[in-house]
Nucleic acid binder design. Structure first.
Lengths: 194, 194
DNA sequence: CCTACCGATCGGTAGG
DNA sequence: CCTACCGATCGGTAGG
């Protein structure tokens, strides 16, 4: 494929991630995406060959965006507490930022596909699993007594804030999450059970 | 409308709640619902008159089911700690039970409609808000130092377990949530910050 | 409740 | 990359 073709494909996928974050991966229709890109349906379709390939490529693009915005910057900090702090802060910032329209991508698509076996669900599952594994590993490195429990709570509190923010527009949702998470991080540092 | 008509309508809505829990309120199509009820599309359609009315009636039926299974039984316990314990236990049981196919209804539909202004989103929002208000009120009655914070955490941890269970099939998700919630309930009882 | 239909849109294909 | 299609399905209507 030509470089121009690849650039077009990347541009399509950027738009697809934002659209799927709002409308879901089924609501992401080829006709609508083509209209927004100002190209023909078939022109866009030929970049992927099937709806499912578009969905898989969109999941992949969303994962790359998440790694770029959250994971990679946190990995620049030393392992243990500084990195865990950075992961939590960057994750909450990522969810909170209006600029980043993909904030709800994982929450939205995970709920949409959790009952639909197939390659798309597997891709979503793998991406979420990798994130939870990273959170667990850094919780362990930071000295949390039960890293898996700790990672579960961090993830649940952040996603809980995200849903409240999206559904009610309550900006205090992230205050609630930050308060809860700060308390657990402090307890982990002091050796208490969080 | 005749009693038979009402019975048919209720039967349709029971099926609609289960279908929407799995496929979302947009995936809940009139044609598919009619096929599952073994009636014609137009016969089913006439019970509601518009897709949005079907969606609103489905949200209402899901709310009634949730009140029946979780809220009403908990309200039989005395206010304060016993009622808060019952709310948490019944909520987690409700999410965990495979029998109750509507377990994911609120998680699924809230994410689906959080970006779609309209009557359906408002109905979902009202139902979730009523549940959060009840959790907050009983957290206050149970002596939690910050009832709103407490209710937020309970809700987030339960929904976090639900998503992990649905996406990964991990039964331990509810063990993680029960552990986290028990710790907070214990701290609330002792007057500590949870 | 039914059959028979409407225009719009879906994913996808043919041919250029 | 395009125009011009395909059959299937969508929400909804006419008429009984």
């Amino acid at each position: 494929m030509s470089t121009a073709g690849l650039r077009t494909r990347d541009a399509i996928l950027e738009r697809a991630v934002d659209l799927a974050s709002a409308e879901g991966l089924e609501g992401l229709t080829i006709g609508r995406l083509a209209a927004e890109m100002e190209m023909s349906k078939s022109g866009l379709f030929r970049h992927f060959g099937a709806k499912e390939e578009l969905q898989l490529a969109t999941v992949d693009a969303a994962a790359r965006r998440f790694v770029e915005g959250v994971v990679a910057p946190a990995l620049e900090r030393e392992p243990g507490r500084p990195r865990l702090d950075a992961l939590c802060e960057l994750y909450l910032d990522h969810l909170e930022s209006q600029v980043f329209a993909g904030g709800c991508f994982w929450g939205a698509t995970a709920h949409e596909f959790d009952d639909r076996p197939g390659a798309v669900r597997d891709a979503i599952r793998d991406a979420v699993a990798a994130w939870l594994a990273l959170l667990t590993e850094e919780s362990r490195n930071a000295g949390a007594p039960d890293p898996e429990q700790f990672a579960f709570e961090l993830q649940a509190l952040a996603q809980g804030a995200n849903l409240r923010y999206r559904l009610f527009g309550e900006e205090k949702a992230f205050v609630l999450a930050r308060t809860a998470i700060a308390r657990r991080l402090a307890a982990a540092g002091s050796g208490d059970r969080a």
